[in-house]
Computed example of a mutant assay.
Amino acid sequence: MAFLTRDSDSPNVGFPPPLVFVGFLLIGCAIDDLFGLNPAISNSVRVVLGGGAILIGCAFVLGALLRFRKAGNNPEPWKRDTAFVAEGVYRITRNPMYLGMVIASFGIAVAANCLGGLLTLPLSIVAIHTQVIRREESYLSATFGDEYREYCRHVRRWI
């Protein structure tokens, strides 16, 4: 696929990370259907908690994307980074896009009354951490050196 053409100087991630979250949510929904998992979450809680989490998660992702674009970076982890970004939501977390995806996935699972989606969420976090974040951190350390390592000392990986 042309859109997944990797830059030679990149974290070398070969897939779109949002697909990990979507995939595990779909697996969770299938588990729900297969085993009849239906938590008794009231509609008001589903709307408030689920909807709120979706909005917060999307705000993190959007804030990170805007900062990336402003710096001239592509958000795709198979593309080269041209600038180090440490402003905006990047002052709160080193991985605002992934944190936003986790929060939004939680919200979707709650809003959909999908216990399986909540149960598979930790698996998506582990997959993103081991297959994406570790590669990105190694790449950023090699690319931006001491500036990135100093940033890591002051800003947490997640929250």
Rank of each mutant, 00 (worst) to 15 (best):
R67K: 08
N43T: 12
S10F: 05
H129S: 10
A2G: 11
L62Q: 02
K70W: 05
L119Y: 03
A83K: 01
P11V: 14
F84T: 08
V85Q: 02
A71L: 06
T130V: 07
T130A: 06
L49P: 04
A59W: 00
V61A: 02
L62M: 05
R134T: 15
W158G: 12
C29M: 11
N38L: 11
L34R: 14
G88Q: 00
D7H: 13
C58N: 06
P39I: 07
E137V: 07
F35H: 09
N73P: 03
L65E: 11
G14Q: 07
S105Y: 12
V85P: 02
V102Y: 02
P75Q: 04
A40D: 15
V85S: 00
D32T: 10
N95K: 10
S8F: 01
E76P: 01
I41G: 04
C114F: 05
R94Q: 04
G36I: 09
P16H: 07
V132M: 08
L25G: 14
Y148L: 12
R94S: 02
L119G: 03
L140K: 09
L119F: 07
D146I: 14
L62S: 04
G23S: 03
A104N: 01
T120M: 15
D33C: 11
V47G: 04
A53Q: 03
G63H: 01
I41N: 03
R46H: 06
R80T: 14
F3E: 15
L66Q: 13
N73M: 04
A83F: 00
C114W: 00
D81T: 15
G36C: 11
S124D: 03
N12Q: 15
L115P: 00
F24K: 01
K70E: 14
V47E: 10
A112C: 13
P75T: 01
W78T: 12
P18H: 11
I103T: 09
V48D: 01
Y148H: 10
A2I: 06
A111F: 11
V89F: 14
A83C: 02
N95V: 12
D81Q: 15
I108Y: 06
P18T: 09
A142H: 15
Y148I: 11
G88T: 00
I56H: 00
I133K: 04
D81G: 08
Y98A: 05
N74C: 06
E147F: 05
G14W: 13
G117I: 12
R157Y: 07
D7Q: 07
G28M: 07
F3R: 08
A30Y: 11
F35Y: 12
G36A: 06
A127W: 15
L99A: 11
R94N: 01
A142P: 00
G50Q: 03
Y148P: 10
N74L: 10
F106I: 06
W78E: 10
L37P: 09
N38I: 06
S141M: 07
R91M: 12
V85Y: 02
V13P: 09
I103Y: 00
W78R: 08
A71N: 09
F35D: 01
